[in-house]
Nucleic acid binder design. Structure first.
Lengths: 340, 340
DNA sequence: GCTAGAGGCGAGAGCGGTTTCAGGTGAAGA
DNA sequence: TCTTCACCTGAAACCGCTCTCGCCTCTAGC
């Protein structure tokens, strides 16, 4: 044995197929890849031999020869230990689910990466160098995604980011406006808000939307920070209610926080939606696990991730491509039925 | 241009580094991989040249040469469209989060695969052939995982499965027993259950645990199927309550269903936990989004996935390896405080 | 019957690494 | 001073596949 380890022990290679079929490697390759230049009779022969041998082309060799790996990368910045990001927030699962659905039937694979805040720069550089089919940025800051884009063009951000980076985003501002407007139409006048973390563009836009709506109605702004976690939402709601017992509505920047907020509200002896109406954001699983069911702003995350994936598969979007998805107000039980 | 496309356009290869450092490719390889056989002075020179050029070894070439790709596969059978699996059930996110955490600092990547029920056989065969570092089976049936194992040994199941397949599993039966026993100790005597889907080993074990507990206490079995979805849990609870209004406790085989069940219970005018006590299973995000907070059986999914990943990285477990993780009863608000 | 052209086919050169093997060097030991 | 040996180092084979290029055959056209 001259070599250390045979690559994939026992597995037939293209050479085995070629030999068994009595043709050259080139011909087998042509047949396998459905490329012109092989007669029908040879095609069927090669195909049957390949099937018989259980031949499966090596992804590594193929990647090396062609220069492209068929892999889509999903990249998310992570906070804290496990449970910290993917495990905790439904958003990421939805991104993965959407991307996976677009990959079905393709020979492209999906890889998941977490980049920790501490060594984000190196991580971004390393990842960007290694992208082949394309990368989806799930929650990457504008600075980092710009850096990524400079090193690798085949990338799409799923959150608002630097203008050069192709983005599929949601109309966060309109969503927040929609929510606050609905609460106002219901007759609520003390509409507080629980926001997401700083330096998160989605959170910022939702905050801006809330503020401009509040301002437009001439109401008083009442904000707290919930950090996009359930606990944060719970604590923020309790604080708000303690300080401003007159609050009669709550706009919460994500359903996870909203679920916590609802718990805090009912724990304080108030009823949802009679005393405090609540509208969340995302329409994630958290909205349907909460009790009462959360009224929320629906985001088509899966569709966005799927479309982004398809774009990457087709060569990627152009410089500065930007598509904004509309959001939808979903009314469930955490808001009272609208008066006619 | 004799070749079609250079592999990774513009990126320095090992040849560039070798030339710039005035050494051979072999030496560069030794330095990069920290293999003995290069003098310290050359090591530092090569390293600095590599850094300067921004050299990053090609994963594809490396995989081809060594025969192993550094990739862990997470495999789940999917049901329905997106949202169908990964997007809907918190379990999968936890598996991913656990696996990711074990991969941190490693050069190993994580890939996610969904195999649809229709073409499961082919999918399993294809995947098994392509496994390199190892595969984690998140929710694969015993038959399929056995088939997988026959084709590729580097695999660990995270759910109970065929005895030959290495498994890291949870003590589902003990968990169900624990839950029902607690409800019984609280004085509840009409303890119904909502189970998971057929041909799901976890669901079966939890059902068995419930039944043997009920039998042990000499109580009446009251079961319904909730299919591991929130809607299913909701509907099952409503049906159970309609048919058996005397029910005073509910054991639900996963938190997602339990969240739905709680909604159905309160919608029927009953109170949780005063009228109906509820214990879920998993301690997933659904448990903490529900209102009231769910008492549940905690499963260390993240830890299991992390440990499984580590085992795979270290060469994989032995034939028939089996580790059973203990579960823990977490008491929150959906059960009344225990009487002393 | 002869030539041109088209299409099928194989040889062979990469893709970017890893690893063996042989040679070369210098220090230690005889 | 001459071996011996350990330690570096580079040449070259190889991993499995793709793709160009040139040869060969066969058909169509004159």
């Amino acid at each position: 044995m001259s070599r250390a380890t045979p690559a994939r022990p026992g597995r037939p290679t293209i050479n085995d197929v070629a030999r068994a079929a009595g043709v050259s490697r080139a011909t087998v390759s042509r047949v396998i890849n459905d490329v012109a230049g092989a007669s029908p009779s040879i095609r069927t022969r090669v195909r049957s031999v390949a099937a018989e041998l259980g031949y499966q082309p090596s992804a590594a060799a193929r990647a090396l020869a062609t220069g492209r790996t068929r892999t889509i990368e999903v990249i998310a910045t992570s906070f804290g230990p496990f449970g910290g990001w993917l495990g905790a927030h439904p958003y990421y699962s939805r991104v993965l689910a959407g991307a996976m659905s677009a990959l079905e039937g393709t020979d492209t694979q999906l890889r998941v990466h977490a980049i920790s805040a501490e060594r984000a720069l190196e991580a971004v550089d390393a990842l960007a160098e290694d992208v082949t089919a394309g990368a989806l940025l799930a929650n990457v800051t504008p600075e980092l995604s710009m850096r990524f884009y400079q090193r690798c063009r085949r990338v799409i951000s799923l959150v608002p980011t630097a203008s050069a980076v192709p983005t599929l985003e949601v109309d966060n501002i309109a969503g927040a406006l929609m929510a606050v407007t609905h609460l106002h139409r219901l007759g609520r006048r003390r509409i507080a808000a629980i926001h997401g973390p700083e330096n998160n563009t989605c959170a910022e836009q939702r905050r801006d939307g809330y503020r401009s709506a509040i301002e437009g109605f001439g109401l008083l702004e009442l904000s707290a920070d919930g950090g996009f976690t359930r606990e944060g939402g719970h604590d923020a709601a309790r604080q708000l209610l303690d300080r401003h017992p007159e609050i009669d509505a709550l706009f919460v920047a994500c359903d996870l926080m909203a679920a916590g907020a609802v718990q805090a509200i009912t724990a304080s002896g108030r009823r949802v939606p009679e005393d405090v109406a609540v509208i969340g954001f995302d329409d994630s699983i958290a909205a349907s696990c909460a009790n009462p069911l959360l009224s929320t702003i629906r985001l088509p995350i899966e569709e966005m991730a799927a479309e982004a994936t398809r774009m990457l598969l087709n060569g990627g979007p152009a410089f500065g491509y930007r598509k904004r998805y509309p959001v939808e107000l979903i009314l469930r039980e955490s808001t009272p039925p609208a008066v006619v």
